[in-house]
Simulated assay, not measured.
Amino acid sequence: MTAETMPDPTSEILRTACARAGLDSAGATVLNRSENVIYRLPGSVVARISRPGQRAAALREVEVARWLESVDVPAVRVLPQTDQPIVVDDQAVTFWRELPPHRHGTPTEVAGALRKLHALTPPATFDLGRLDPFVRLGQRIESASTISADDREWMREHLAELKEHWTRLPEGLPWCVVHGDAWVGNVVATEDGEVVMLDLERTSIGPPEWDTVHTAIKYKSLGQITEDEYRSFCEVYGSDVTMWDGYELLRDLREFRMTTMAAQTAVTIEADQPQADHRIACLRGRLGPRPWSGWWPVPSR
C-alpha cells in the first residue's frame, strides 16, 4: 500500500469529533498539514486536529480566541455553542469559523496587530502561562528521521546551548501578552482590510521581542523583505528589536524553531527534505554568513 492510498488516520478522528459536536463531516477537505491538520467542513466551518498530547494547548487556544473576541481584537473565531476541545485518541479537535478570502499580512499590518495585542491587559478568567520557546523542539529533533546522525547530534547540542543562554536573556521591554508565532502567515488581511490573527495556541505572557524578531529575521537573516519594509514595521510597532542586546539569542531561537519544523515535515513530505537539510546547513555555517537565500515555506504545497 502506497502513502497515497493509505487511509488517513485523522479522517476517522474528524468523523468521531464531528459526530460528538453535532457537525457534518461529509465532504471535508484538507486545507493544511503541518503542526496540526486543518479540514474545511460544510457550512464554512474549519476543524483543527492537533498532534497527540496537545489538549492543554488546544484548550488554551480556544480560551484565547474567546477572550480576544470579548475585547474586540480581530482574531480567528471559535465556533459558538460547541464544547471544545473534543479529544479523540489523545488528539484534540477544535472547530472554528472559516475566514473570508485573505492574504498574508504585510510587515506594517503585522506591526499594527502586534502593537494592539501587546497593549492588552492579560485576561483575568484564565492563566495564559509563560512563553516556552522550546516547546516540542526535543521531540522534533528525535523524530526527524531524514536528517543525518551528525546533524541530529549537532541539533541536540545546539538546543542545550540555547536553553542555557535563555536563562540569561537580557532585560528588554516589559513582558506582556504575546502571540507566540507571529509570522506573516499567522497575521492575515481579509479583502475588506481587516487584519486577523491566526494560530493562537502559543499565545502566552512573554517578551514582546519574541513576536517582533520574526520580521527582523525576514529582513536581516533571509532577505525576504526590503529595508524600507522593515523600517516601516519598526515605525508602526514603535521599536527595533535588532537594537536590543537579546536580539541575537531570540534570532537564533527562532531560526532553530523554523529549522526543526522543516525537519519535522520532511518525515512525511519528501519534498521538504532538501529544505530541512538546507536550513541545517545555514545554521551550521556551511553556507556562509547571513543573509541566506533559499528558505521556502514548509510544508510544501
Rank of each mutant, 00 (worst) to 15 (best):
L128K: 10
Q224K: 05
L253R: 06
M243P: 01
L114N: 11
E4F: 11
V30G: 04
T106Y: 02
T268E: 15
I225Y: 02
R231P: 11
P133G: 10
A92M: 12
V93Y: 07
L41N: 11
L31M: 06
Y39S: 12
D127N: 14
F233P: 08
V195W: 08
S239A: 14
L14Q: 03
L41E: 13
A266M: 12
W154G: 02
R156F: 08
L59V: 09
H102Y: 13
R202T: 09
P42F: 00
R290I: 14
L128N: 09
I225F: 02
E209P: 13
D228C: 03
M258I: 10
V78S: 12
L159K: 01
F126L: 13
P170E: 06
G112T: 07
L68N: 13
Y230W: 11
V45D: 04
R33L: 09
G53Q: 13
V30T: 13
T106L: 08
A75L: 08
A65K: 07
M243Q: 07
V37P: 02
E255W: 07
T82Q: 00
V76P: 12
Q224L: 13
Y230M: 06
S239K: 01
E157Q: 05
C18E: 03
L169Y: 04
E270Y: 12
F134M: 10
R202A: 00
V236E: 15
N32K: 06
S70K: 15
E109D: 13
A160G: 02
V241H: 01
S44H: 10
L137R: 04
E161N: 01
V71E: 14
T215V: 14
V196N: 11
D272R: 09
S34G: 15
W67H: 15
V76Y: 05
V236A: 14
Q139M: 05
L23I: 04
